[in-house]
Simulated scan of single mutants.
Amino acid sequence: MDRLTVRLPPDLIRRFDAAAAGRGGRSRFLRSLIGGAAQGALPEPVAPLVSPRDAKLSLRLTADDMALLEAEAARTGLSRTQWTVALIRRRLHERPQLSPSEAIAFVGIQRELRRIGVNVNQIARALNTAVLEGKVLDLEVAQLADFATEIRAHLVGVQDAFRGNLDYWSDR
């Protein structure tokens, strides 16, 4: 048997319950109303109004599971729906799912890496165009090596963050 779910404002459901009380209760009364409405000729089939992007999934959880879900979602800075969608997308698409704070952190890392990249390009351009001798060249080469080390450290941090994100959303 199929199930039909309807969301109604509290006042309307109270009035419906009052009307249904003398007619066998909510379910029986609703079935009789639907049956009466369906007595006419069937309408021509139309294309479904729900696209894959609009599909909805409903879950029934125990109160304990819902409390755990809400606590875990809050801990990650997501709503329970966002957290559940992220979990499903991680499993389906095998890509990291970032919370708002993680996304902001990654934007900061990208900004820093761009800044370092600009500095490295300036140094490389200066080394290519200038004829430097002695200590000046040694200082430029040392600074370039420092930037390379800093870039590698940031890249390791990004890899660790992505690995941690993937581990979080994977089977435990």
Results as ranks from 00 to 15, higher is better:
1 M>F: 08
2 D>I: 11
4 L>Y: 08
8 L>M: 10
10 P>D: 00
10 P>N: 05
13 I>G: 00
13 I>A: 05
14 R>I: 04
14 R>K: 09
15 R>H: 13
15 R>T: 12
16 F>D: 01
16 F>E: 01
17 D>N: 11
17 D>S: 05
21 A>C: 07
25 G>R: 01
26 R>E: 00
26 R>I: 01
27 S>I: 12
27 S>F: 05
28 R>I: 14
28 R>S: 12
32 S>N: 09
34 I>E: 00
39 Q>M: 11
41 A>E: 11
42 L>T: 11
42 L>C: 08
43 P>R: 07
43 P>M: 02
43 P>E: 05
47 A>G: 12
49 L>Y: 07
53 R>D: 08
54 D>M: 11
55 A>L: 13
55 A>I: 07
60 R>F: 09
61 L>H: 01
61 L>I: 05
61 L>E: 00
62 T>E: 02
63 A>W: 03
64 D>H: 14
64 D>Q: 15
65 D>I: 05
65 D>Y: 04
66 M>D: 12
66 M>V: 06
68 L>V: 04
69 L>S: 02
70 E>Q: 06
73 A>F: 00
73 A>M: 02
75 R>S: 09
76 T>Y: 11
77 G>Y: 04
81 T>E: 15
81 T>H: 13
82 Q>C: 08
85 V>S: 03
88 I>W: 11
89 R>F: 05
89 R>A: 12
92 L>Y: 03
93 H>Q: 14
93 H>P: 03
93 H>S: 15
94 E>A: 15
96 P>D: 01
99 S>A: 14
102 E>H: 03
103 A>D: 10
103 A>W: 07
109 I>C: 05
110 Q>G: 15
110 Q>F: 13
111 R>I: 11
114 R>C: 08
115 R>G: 11
115 R>N: 12
116 I>T: 03
118 V>F: 13
118 V>S: 13
118 V>H: 14
119 N>Q: 11
119 N>F: 02
125 R>L: 15
128 N>A: 15
131 V>Q: 10
131 V>S: 10
133 E>N: 12
133 E>V: 13
133 E>P: 00
134 G>I: 00
135 K>M: 11
137 L>I: 09
137 L>H: 09
138 D>F: 06
144 L>E: 03
144 L>A: 02
145 A>S: 14
145 A>R: 02
148 A>P: 04
148 A>C: 15
149 T>V: 15
152 R>Y: 08
154 H>S: 12
155 L>D: 09
156 V>Y: 08
156 V>K: 04
158 V>Q: 01
159 Q>H: 12
160 D>V: 09
161 A>Q: 10
162 F>T: 05
162 F>N: 02
164 G>Y: 03
166 L>E: 01
168 Y>H: 05
169 W>E: 01
169 W>C: 01
169 W>P: 00
170 S>L: 04
